[in-house]
Design a protein around this nucleic acid. Structure first.
Length: 549
RNA sequence: GCCUUCGUAGCUCAAUGGAUAGAGCAUCUCACUCCUAACGAGACGAUGUAGGUUCGAUUCCUGCCGAAGGCACCA
């Protein structure tokens, strides 16, 4: 629809002698203004030396003609907006289409044939998964689905740090405690906290841990590597359990233990070519020349840092899972580091660098203070999920429904706002499942499905009332909202839209009787179209849709 | 000190350079014999500050104030 209007406006402008004007087709703030509007007249007025309002009415006249039966009216308003109101049959036609299409409704083809590689979640084994990773996981899955909805193939991967100082700290403490087979991720996480404290408090521990770090890179000590393998495994098993609950999955898991070697090779090669420099025994990338920081890629001890491994990973993935576009989701605190990694990558492999982008997300911050893994004030993903389920349980005896409601509430909280910003997480308030929330969307859908469950399967050929409901005009927008969300990497645009849609449905529900009413047939079509839109929208966000609540 | 991001209602968030800046929470009204009230209707209430660009600025640019993060051997 937007394309139709764009083409028509483009032609009208060309006829008026302003073919190179750039203009927007947008949604008016209020449906009272119409279904679409354009600023074309205001944008072209100056170049043509005309009064915007006069130009607008000239354009409106010719647009009304060229659009014919697509529109009910084309009017001029305000400083020179041209407003389009869609014709009644066009709106009801799209509503019926939505009701009939089912899961295909809202699907786009904008990214057809493209392969995306998206990296997210990325918890480190040897620690528990905390709410920061939960956030990355939820955003990454939603972004993946929003992109898939436009026809792209998305390959998901998670990348974990299974070697390096933090691992050595955990393994060191496990050894000290005489644990050869850790029982769960918590035990390993506690060991990390213990080792981390010892590293700062004791010179002796520090020396031992540094040696252990090196030994793990080398990997010759059988007992040590066995403990390392078991510690990693027990954490990964727990991560996979959480992914199941969150309805996400990964095609690949990459680990730093695999990227260390290729990372070292790339850096050595780059050193020979003058991309990197030696300084104080370390190998660095001089970012100053590009207005960035200078960072160490290989330490003076000969270990690759995060940066070197990241570069190694870029080539490893390019080899194993080639793609057209690669997104890496990490916390915003890493933007500076990532900028340096990308700068180095541009010097070494410009093609790989060109398709790689960093998508930063904020922190989940607590109103009660900062999280610290050393002080044990970390909220783990498991604990948060369990807490919210407990609240949902109060109103749902069925534990599966309680879980669906809880997961919906958590995901909504994360996906309601732009991904880049921090989320202020008030434990008490986020336990409330009312207002703008996941359950609000789920409940709206449950009510629509209930009505549909009473109705026989004889919908679709219903006659629409003369005036469209606002709900209908909102449903019409869904495919365009989805396309825009994919283009902007903005799953939250879907969340915002669904919240508005649910509100409109609830208003309709409160003021209109469906079953047994006049015009029941069309209202059922509308209920079906709403339910389909909500189902497909929730699916894009990976928010579960329980059958009842 | 330098770099990045940010500053919208009492609180938490929206708003591809456009029309009367939208929601939820909180507070106050109203509404439950009706398809599930985890709902609906209404009231109250906001663009840090000073300039600039523009027909038009929450949005772009500059200064100031304030916040968060980053700035070589952690990730």
């Amino acid at each position: 629809m937007e394309e139709t209007l764009r083409t028509a406006v483009q032609k009208a402008l060309a006829d008026a002698g302003a073919s190179d004007t750039s203009f927007a087709i947008e949604w008016p703030t209020d449906f009272a203004h119409g279904d679409y509007s354009t600023n074309a007249a205001m944008a072209a007025a100056k170049a043509l030396g005309k009064n915007p309002k006069e130009l607008a009415s000239e354009l409106a006249t010719s647009l009304k003609e060229s659009l014919g039966e697509t529109v009910e009216s084309v009017t001029v308003a305000g400083p020179g907006f041209i407003n389009f109101t869609l014709a009644r049959p066009v709106i009801s036609g799209i509503v019926k289409e939505a009701a009939a299409l089912g899961s295909e409704w809202g699907r786009g083809a904008e990214l057809e044939g493209k392969r995306y590689s998206i990296e997210y979640s990325c918890p480190n084994p040897f620690k528990e998964m905390h709410i920061g990773h939960l956030m990355s996981t939820v955003i990454g899955e939603a972004l993946s689905r929003v992109i898939e909805n436009e026809g792209a193939t998305v390959i998901r991967d998670s990348y974990g740090g299974d070697v390096g100082p933090h691992v050595a700290k955990a393994v060191w403490a496990l050894q000290k405690k005489g644990i050869t087979e850790p029982a769960n991720a918590k035990e390993v996480g506690d060991a990390y906290a213990h080792g981390s404290r010892a590293y700062e408090e004791s010179e002796e521990a520090k020396t031992e841990i540094d040696a252990l770090n090196r030994a793990i890179y080398v990997g010759n000590d059988r007992d040590l590597m066995e403990l390392w393998r078991k510690g990693r495994e027990v954490c990964l098993e727990e991560f996979k359990e959480i992914y199941k609950v969150l309805d996400t999955h990964f095609d690949y898991f990459f680990f730093e233990s695999e990227t260390a070697v290729p990372g070292m090779e790339v850096v050595k090669d780059g050193l020979a070519r003058g991309v990197f420099e030696e300084s104080q025994g370390a190998i660095i990338y001089n970012g100053e020349k590009k207005g960035l920081h200078t960072l160490v890629f290989v330490t003076s001890q000969g270990n690759p840092t995060y940066e070197a491994k990241e570069v190694g990973l870029a080539f490893l993935i390019e080899e194993r899972v080639p793609s057209d576009v690669r997104y890496i989701l990490t916390a915003a605190e890493q933007v500076g580091h990532f900028a340096v990694v990308k700068a180095a990558l541009e010097d070494i492999g410009p093609l790989v660098a060109a398709k790689t982008s960093h998508v930063p997300h904020g922190f989940l911050r607590l109103t009660t203070g900062k999280m610290s893994s050393r002080e044990g004030s970390v909220i783990t993903a498991t604990d948060l999920i369990a807490d919210i389920i407990k609240v949902a349980r109060e109103r749902n005896e069925d534990s599966l429904i309680a879980q669906a409601v809880a997961i919906g509430a958590i995901k909504y909280m994360i996906l309601r706002q732009a991904a880049g910003g921090d989320i202020i997480f008030d434990v008490d308030k986020s336990l409330s499942l009312e207002g703008d929330s996941g359950p609000y969307l789920q409940y709206a859908l449950v009510r629509a499905r209930k009505i549909l469950s009473y109705a026989p399967e004889k919908l679709l050929d219903a006659e629409a009332p003369a005036t469209p409901y606002t709900l209908e005009r909102l449903i019409v927008r869904f495919p365009e909202v989805a396309r825009q969300a994919a283009a902007d990497h903005a799953p939250h645009a879907i969340t915002q839209y669904l919240t508005k849609l649910a509100g409109e449905w609830n208003s309709f529900y409160a003021s209109e009787q469906v079953l047994g009413s006049d015009g029941e047939a069309y209202k059922l079509v509308l209920a079906k179209a709403f339910a389909t839109t909500m189902e497909n929208g929730l699916r894009m966000l990976a928010i579960p849709a329980p059958e009842r609540m």
